[in-house]
């Protein structure tokens, strides 16, 4: 049912995160929902991976479990070499703070903080000193220099997502999770956001894992993981369009 990627990938042998036998169920009795069924997955470092699947396939749940936002029912999740199962809520939160970056589909920013303050938020929460150089670099790369003083309500959708990306990058995380980052954007803004994510992988050496249901967005990624009904049905490296469409349509291994 699953395809495990050979760890010798073009980008190197390191995995940023992996899951073994990851299972997540909700509810009980007649209302039980199997969101994930025994997922085995390796996410290589320094690559842009897209997790694709139709709605209800469990891709968001997979991301939540990998990111430590939700606890798995069974199975293990290892991120940056650390097993998440043994951590209590506070330890998990601190781990997230230091090793994981997030970009959500919408509602990424706190409405009462300016863009600059939003970017620095994880550092502030951690109580870490602000690395001005890193901040300037990230702001420069994302082209936000003239927007850092604005409130989110004064920014366009694309600009808000860029701020979210900047915030995810400023802590130099081991892995960045993006949940449908272009879901609410028009094509121009989508291209911007996706190009920025690609660029951060290429030039800043980040590892980005993006959950999406759009083919056009997945085209930007290096690798594509296809998930159906809570199980991984394909893990493709630099797939062509046809290969990808076929994997999405087919439900067998």
């Amino acid at each position: 049912m699953t395809t495990t990627l050979d760890t010798t990938t073009p980008a190197g042998t390191r995995t940023a995160a992996h899951a073994r036998g990851l299972t997540r169920t909700y509810g009980a009795g007649d209302n039980v929902v199997h969101a994930l069924r025994g997922v085995d997955l390796d996410l290589p470092a320094g690559r842009f991976t897209a997790i694709m699947g139709p709605s209800g396939s469990g891709k968001s749940t997979l991301m939540h479990c990998l990111a430590g936002l939700d606890a798995a029912t069974s199975g293990t999740v290892t991120v940056a070499g650390r097993d998440l199962a043994g951590l209590d809520d506070t330890a998990l939160t601190i781990f997230r703070r230091e090793h994981i970056g997030f970009v959500f589909q919408a509602f990424n920013l706190l409405p009462m903080l300016t863009a600059g303050q939003n970017i620095l938020l994880p550092l502030e929460l951690a109580g870490r000193a602000v690395d001005r150089q890193r901040y300037d670099q990230v702001v420069g790369v994302l082209g936000l220099a003239d927007r850092v003083g604005h409130l989110p309500s004064q920014l366009s959708g694309g600009q808000q997502q860029r701020v979210a990306i900047a915030r995810a990058l400023v802590t130099q995380p081991d892995i960045v999770f993006a949940d449908e980052p272009t879901g609410n954007l028009d094509s121009e803004a989508s291209a911007e956001v996706l190009d920025h994510l690609r660029r951060s992988v290429r030039e800043l050496g980040m590892t980005v894992v993006m959950v999406t249901h759009e083919l056009a967005a997945a085209a930007y990624a290096d690798d594509v993981v296809v998930i159906h009904d809570g199980a991984v049905t394909a893990h493709l490296t630099e797939p062509g369009q046809d290969e990808l469409v076929a994997a999405l349509r087919g439900r067998d291994a």
């Binding site: 936002l69 601190i94 997030f102 509602f107 706190l110 994880p122 929460l125």
Partner: peptide
């Protein structure tokens, strides 16, 4: 609710 979830995701502990 959503905002607090965002903050928690970003690294705000329960205590904070």
């Amino acid at each position: 609710g959503r905002e607090n979830a965002l903050l928690r995701a970003m690294g705000l502990t329960r205590e904070q």
